[in-house]
Design a protein around this nucleic acid. Sequence first.
DNA 1: CTTCCGAAGATTGCATTCAATACATCAAGA
DNA 2: TCTTGATGTATTGAATGCAATCTTCGGAAG
Lengths: 238, 238
Amino acid sequence: MSSPASIGVVHAFPAPNRSLHGTLLDSLRTLINQGELAPGSRVPERALCQKFAVSRTPLREALKVLAAEDLVQLLPNRGARVASLDDAKLGHLFEVIGMLESEGGRLAAARIGAAALAEIKGMHYQMHAHFLRQELPEYFALNQAIHEAILSAAGNPVLMTMYFGLSGRIKRARYMANKMRPDRWQQAMDEHEAILTALCDREGERLAGLLVRHLANKRDIILEAVRVQAVSDRTSIP
Amino acid sequence: MSSPASIGVVHAFPAPNRSLHGTLLDSLRTLINQGELAPGSRVPERALCQKFAVSRTPLREALKVLAAEDLVQLLPNRGARVASLDDAKLGHLFEVIGMLESEGGRLAAARIGAAALAEIKGMHYQMHAHFLRQELPEYFALNQAIHEAILSAAGNPVLMTMYFGLSGRIKRARYMANKMRPDRWQQAMDEHEAILTALCDREGERLAGLLVRHLANKRDIILEAVRVQAVSDRTSIP
DNA sequence: CTTCCGAAGATTGCATTCAATACATCAAGA
DNA sequence: TCTTGATGTATTGAATGCAATCTTCGGAAG
C-alpha cells in the first residue's frame, strides 16, 4: 500500500528536509538519466558544485553511492566517469529485471488483495484510455505504475528496492525510446490486457510467463532505439 | 575472535592500491557482519576514525554507501546506526535471493560450458570430503563457492552483482549459524548432490526448483540460529 | 611532420575546520 | 521523588585547505 505513487515524474527538486548528498543523488541521477551527463564522459566535479551550490564533500559522497550502483565509474586519481550502457549490459539488466518481475508477479498473483487488484484495474483502464488517445507520456507513466503496483503486491520490500535500483539503471535507455511504432504499441497493450487477466485469475505461472515476454519486447524496443540513437550520435558529432 | 573494540590502530586490510573509502567499506562490512558493530547500535564515527587512522571524510563516504545498501541507517543529524535484521527482512532477502539463484540456475543449465561444469564438480567432491570429515568451515566455503560458480555460469554480471549484494546483507545472520545439526547437514549434502546432477543433465527447470528448496532449508536453519542468538542476547545483556 | 619530454596548471583524495544540532548534566520547582 | 528547564559539551553535516597526482601545452629532437 505504500505505493510511492510518484508516477513517472522525473524532476529533481531542491529538497528542504533532506541532506545535501541525498538531494544531490536525485539531481545527479536525473542528469545521467536524461543524458545531460553523457555516458562515458567525465563527471565535472567543480562545475557540478557550482551548479548546485554545494561544496565538493557532499557531491563526492553522492558519487561514491552512484559508483556503488554502477551508474558512474570511479577511476583512481582520475575522478568519475558516467558508466556507459552498451547493448550487452542492457541485456543483462533486462534479464535480471525479468527475473524479479516474473517471480514477483508469481508471488503477487498469490498474495494480492482485492483493494490492490482494484487499483491496478483502474490504472489499467486509464492507461487504455491514454492508448486510445495515443498519449504516449501518460501511457508510459501508467504503464510503469502498473508494473510497480504488481511487484508491490508481492509484499516484499527488498524486491521493490532491487527493482527500483535496476530500473533506475535503464532509465537512460528508456528515455531514448520516446516513440513507439503503432503495431508495437498495440501489442504491448494486448500484453497488458493478458497480464491483467492472469493477475485477476491468480494464475501465477501464466502471469510470470507473460511478464517475461512483455519485458523482452520492451527490451527489443529499447535496444532498437538505443542503436538508432547511437548511430545518429555518431553521424552528427564528428 | 580478537579482543573486542580495544583501541588499537588497525589497518584492517593490506590495501596498498585502493582508495581509503573502498578499504573502509570492506572493513566496516566485516565489522558489521561479524557483529562487532551490533545491529541497532550507533556507528561511532570518531572511534572508527581512530581505529582505522583515517579522517572522517572517507569514513563518511563509506557510510553513505553502506546506507544505500541498507546495511546502516542514516538519521539526520544523529549519525548512522547499524541496520537491524529481523525475521521479516531476512525472509524478504531470502525470497529475492531465491529468485536470483533459481532463475540464474536455469540460465546456467542452458549456458554452462564443460570447463565450468568440471570445476563445479571438482568443488562438489571436495566439499563432500569436508562433509565426511565434518569440517564445517571448509564445507561452508566450498558450498558458497559452488553456488557462486553456478550463478557465474549464467553469464550475467549484473546478476552476480545483485547476488553478492544480497548475500552480503545476510552474512551477519549466516555468521550466527556456525553449527549445523547432523540431519540438516546430511540433507543439505543430498540436495547438493541433486543440484549437481540436474546441472550436469542441463535440466534447468528441475535445477531451479532444487535451488529454491535448498535455499528455503538454509533460510530455516539461519532463522532458527538467529532466534536462538536473539534469545541468548536478551537473557545475558540486561 | 611526428614523437618525446617537461613544466605550469588543473583536478583529485583526504585532512582539517567551522557552524548547527543533538545529547548530557545538573539544578530548581512541583 | 519526579518532572522540567538551562547550560555546556559532543557529534554531526558541510566547507575549506593542502599535498599528491594527472592533464595540457609548448618546444626540442629525430
